[in-house]
Amino acid sequence: MAHGTTDTRGTAASGPEAAAPRTEPGAGTRTGQSRRTDAAPRVPLRHRLRRDRVLLLMVLPALLLLLVFNYVPLIGNVVAFQDYDPYLADNAFQAISQSPWVGFEHFRHMADDRLFWQAVRNTLAIFLIQLTLFFPVPILLALFLHSFVRPRVRAVAQAILYLPHFFSWVLVITVFQQMFGGAGLVAQVLRDHGHEGFDLMTDPGFFKFLITFELIWKDAGWGVIVFLAALSAISSDLYEAAAMDGAGRWRRMWHIQLPALRPVLALLLVLQVGNALTVGFEQILLQRTAVGPTASEVLDTYVWNVGLDNGNFSYAAAVGIVKGIFGLVLVLAANKVAHLMGEQGVYKR
């Protein structure tokens, strides 16, 4: 899922974005209830195997694809401990087998790599900005939409607000460029009124906010779904009882709706924190030339830049491993915190 195109997941998962959108799909991970409904636990293994062989065959293609493209690459991470030279052979596998081993050299090198630490700083800064600016938007939007009583109003508004989620990042960025770029609509209007030189798209100082606004435009509407579902699951008895006791609209929101959203909020927050190191990969890759790497380089784009653009595969893989390990630690830690606070998190205890 680390890899750029998993937008589907986002789509699927890329809730709060590739990085973020990814979160939503994640919603599906709450598995593992052990409701053991084994139909026939005492049937001998051999018979079960024969009975279920068709089912196993059905699973096989997906399983193979996952093994080849998700598990085998895990092993491919050995290049981080080598000086991998792609020109040793035509084929990456042969090249790996012939490349010299260097132990932890690349990991040591990371400690005093200025660009690496800059990428770390940018990643964390963007994560914090998105946490404060993006995360609350779908909640507010959901509360707002929920307050409309006519189903048709809600349906039309939702159809419109979902739409950008299905746009590609290339499209979203080109749309922003046409609105806020140097030749965009805002610049055009300002020029007609005598102001020159407006261009949000190439302003390094604004860049982290720019990608956050792009994310809001693309995915805030989509993020509403989960919250709307939670809101519509609230029994109207609760509202009625509160109203009878004299609670007005706002108090009902505070004491009924927000508590009802708590589990979903906790889940999404955990996912968001777990994805903290995976912010805005595609977005930044598409825009980094416009603002320069100082403002925009994050860990994922750094891996891309060092590995695929400059050909230093081994060092890039090492950075990727460090990122992956800390990402996993973040997910587990965030889950732990959620459990401590009495919420479910991504998986159960």
Binding site: A2, H3, V72, G324
Partner: peptide
Amino acid sequence: VLIATMFFGAGLIPTYLV
């Protein structure tokens, strides 16, 4: 095996190499 893949990514470089 399926769900585990949602918690880790193998990383860009090794995926590319594969």
